[in-house]
């Protein structure tokens, strides 16, 4: 992919992510974040990792965002209560400092090290081969991941469910 295309994707993704973190309206934040996830998926496509790109779209854009939205809806006190209160300035500044420090370190690492030369065409990862490897070499990991997902689902159901004597949720 050309550098210009990469650059474009970067900017879009970064922009929507930054904006998502800054907005006060929760739903808007979520929607912008969806945008940044789509940007990441396009990046994956440009790198030739189609499977991952579609996985990204399916999982993040399709499922996680829905879960987040549901959580947003379930944790508001009234129909219009989707704005979050302002945070203190000192908190913002300390966050920026911390983030800046980490960024500095990471950029130093990224820019100062000599990286090996890239190959022209990326490796090929046909889906069939992926399937064979998943069921072959990485079968155990696949099972573990399956277990994790099962347990996580069950756990979240348990955690989020009402207590037996629990109060009913506010009527929307």
């Amino acid at each position: 992919m050309t550098t210009a295309l990469l650059l474009l994707i970067c900017l879009v993704t970064l922009g929507s992510a930054a904006t998502a973190m800054l907005l006060r309206n929760l739903i808007h934040s979520v929607l912008l974040l969806i945008g940044s996830w789509i940007g990441v998926a396009i990046f994956y496509l440009s790198c030739g990792a189609e499977f991952v790109a579609f996985a990204q779209l399916l999982v993040y854009v399709g499922a996680v965002s829905m879960v987040v939205l549901f959580a947003v809806l379930l944790t508001r006190r009234s129909r219009t209560d989707v704005t979050v209160s302002a945070d203190t300035v000192s908190r913002a500044w300390s966050a920026v400092m911390a983030g800046g420090a980490v960024l500095a370190v990471l950029l130093y690492g990224a820019l100062m090290t000599t990286l090996p030369a890239a190959s022209a065409h990326g490796p090929a990862a046909p889906v069939k081969q992926l399937g064979a490897e998943l069921m072959g070499i990485h079968a155990a990991s696949l099972l573990v991941i399956g277990m994790i997902l099962t347990v996580a689902t069950l756990g979240s159901v348990v955690i989020a469910s009402e207590e037996p004597s629990g109060k009913k949720e506010d009527a929307p």
């Binding site: 970067c10 913002a92 966050a95 960024l103 990471l106 990224a110």
Partner: peptide, 29 residues
């Protein structure tokens, strides 16, 4: 190299996420 660009990109995204997590008080954010 493009690799470097990608690394810078991912670092920036990471730090944006970090800064956002540190600064917002809403749990969902």
């Amino acid at each position: 190299s493009p690799l470097q660009l990608c690394l810078v990109f991912s670092s920036l995204l990471f730090c944006i996420g970090l800064a956002g997590a540190l600064s917002r008080s809403n749990s969902i954010l």
